[in-house]
Design a protein around this nucleic acid. Structure first.
Lengths: 132, 132
DNA sequence: AAATAAAATTGTAATAGTTACAAAATTATT
DNA sequence: AATAATTTTGTAACTATTACAATTTTATTT
C-alpha cells in the first residue's frame, strides 16, 4: 500500500472495494457491502479509513450536493456529473488535460482540483423539455 | 426580482445581503447578519429562500467540504479555492472561459458547472514546506 | 371593503451524515 | 514475554439541513 499508508486488513478491504467499484460509493454503501464478509467491521472504521486515504491523496472525495460524500479511487484528472433528480454520479472525461488556467496572483498552495457538472441524466432527462 | 422569483421583504433582504457580501457566506452567517435588522426572521426561512434562489439559478451554492453550504450571488463563470486549514473560500478567476471540454456522448442535460481548488491560503501556507 | 384563496414564513421536531472519544483489540518492537 | 504503538470499535454527541403543520402575510375575488 502506497501513499505512506500502512496496510491492514480493513484498509486493504476498503481500497480493494473502491478499486473494484468505480461507482463513487458513499461511506454507507462501502460499509454495507463489506460488512457481510467482514462482520467485525465498524462504520467508524470505514469513516476513519476513508478520511486517512483522502488526506494522503490516495483517493478522491467527491462532494457535490452536501448530502453525503462519495469516494473514488481513480485520482486521475477527470470530472463528475450528478443528476439533480436521481442523484447518481458518473465520470466525465475531459477532452484535454486542463492547463494552469486560474490567475494565482496570491501565494496559494494549490494541491487539488475538482470539476463537476449538474443537470439531468439520460434516464431522468427523457421528459425534459427546455423552456428557453 | 428576476429568475421567476416573486419578491418579498425577506427574499429581497437575503439577495441584497448576498450581493453586498461576496464572501461566500453560510446560511448561518446570513441569518445572523440579517436577524438584528429583521427580528422576525427565522432560519428556516433563510434555508427556504436560499434553496429557492439556487433552484432558479439566481445564486450559486458552493459545496466543497461537505460541512456546510456557502452561497454566491456572482453566477458568472469562476472557480473557488478553499483552504484546508482555515476553511476560508475565495474566488479564482479563470484565465479564459472554458470551452465545452467534456465528452458528452450520452444524452446528459448539463446546466451547471463548478470548479474548485483546495490547498493552503497565503496565511496558512506560510510555514508550508513541500516534501517533494 | 369583506371574504376567500394562495403564498410565504415560522417554530419545533426529526433526520442523517459525520465526528469525538475512551476502551478494547491488534500489531509491532524491545 | 513484556511493552509500546497503532488500529479498531461502539456509543454518544454534534451539526447542518429538512419535514411539516400552524400561522401570518399577501393577492384575488366577490
Amino acid at each position: 500500500m502506497q501513499f505512506g499508508i500502512k496496510p491492514s486488513l480493513h484498509r486493504l478491504a476498503v481500497m480493494e472495494y473502491l478499486m473494484g467499484n468505480l461507482t463513487h460509493p458513499t461511506t454507507d454503501t462501502i460499509y454495507n457491502n463489506l460488512f457481510p464478509a467482514i462482520p467485525t467491521l465498524s462504520k467508524t472504521t470505514v469513516y476513519n479509513i476513508l478520511k486517512l486515504f483522502e488526506e494522503k491523496r490516495a483517493i478522491a472525495a467527491i462532494v457535490i450536493d452536501g448530502k453525503n460524500a462519495r469516494y473514488d479511487s481513480d485520482i486521475s484528472q477527470h470530472a463528475h456529473f450528478q443528476c439533480r433528480k436521481c442523484g447518481s454520479v458518473r465520470d466525465l472525461r475531459l477532452k484535454e488535460t486542463l492547463p494552469v488556467m486560474v490567475e494565482n496572483s496570491d501565494n496559494l498552495v494549490i494541491d487539488d482540483c475538482h470539476i463537476y457538472f449538474r443537470g439531468y441524466c439520460s434516464e431522468c432527462g427523457k421528459n425534459y423539455i427546455s423552456m428557453n
